[in-house]
Amino acid sequence: MTAEHPHALLGAYALDALGRADRAQFTAHLEACTLCQAELAEFRETARRFGEVERPSD
């Protein structure tokens, strides 16, 4: 992870697709970044809604 704002990693974090080191660094960042906290909540809400969508029958 670079020293720049890690916003681009948010999607991968939400999908649990980061490596151990990047995940740990992003988790630490998330504790202090309200912007990323809000976006993560939005990602999770979207994922929850996808789970509610009925699939068409074959």
Rank of each mutant, 00 (worst) to 15 (best):
M1D: 13
T2N: 12
T2F: 08
T2V: 08
A3G: 07
A3S: 13
A3K: 14
A3I: 06
E4V: 03
H5M: 11
P6M: 06
A8L: 04
A8S: 00
L9D: 01
L9N: 00
L9K: 01
L10Y: 00
G11F: 03
G11A: 02
G11R: 10
G11S: 11
A12D: 09
A12I: 01
A12T: 02
A12N: 01
Y13L: 00
Y13H: 00
A14M: 01
L15R: 01
L15W: 00
D16W: 07
L18W: 01
L18V: 05
R20C: 06
R20K: 12
R20G: 04
D22S: 12
D22M: 09
D22L: 04
D22T: 01
R23W: 10
R23V: 07
R23S: 15
A24C: 06
A24R: 15
Q25A: 12
Q25T: 06
Q25R: 14
F26N: 06
F26I: 05
T27M: 04
A28Q: 14
A28M: 07
A28Y: 09
A28F: 05
A28T: 10
H29D: 05
L30F: 10
L30P: 10
E31T: 12
E31L: 09
E31C: 09
E31F: 07
C33H: 01
T34F: 10
T34N: 11
L35T: 13
L35D: 15
L35C: 13
C36H: 14
Q37R: 15
Q37V: 11
Q37S: 13
A38Q: 15
A38T: 15
A38Y: 15
L40I: 08
L40C: 07
L40W: 10
A41Q: 15
E42M: 13
E42N: 15
E42R: 13
F43L: 14
R44K: 11
E45R: 14
T46H: 07
T46L: 09
T46C: 04
T46M: 04
T46G: 04
A47V: 10
A47S: 08
A47I: 13
A47K: 08
R49N: 06
R49T: 07
F50L: 14
F50I: 03
G51M: 03
G51L: 02
G51K: 03
E52G: 03
E52D: 02
V53I: 05
V53C: 03
V53R: 06
R55C: 05
R55H: 05
R55S: 04
P56E: 08
S57M: 10
S57P: 06
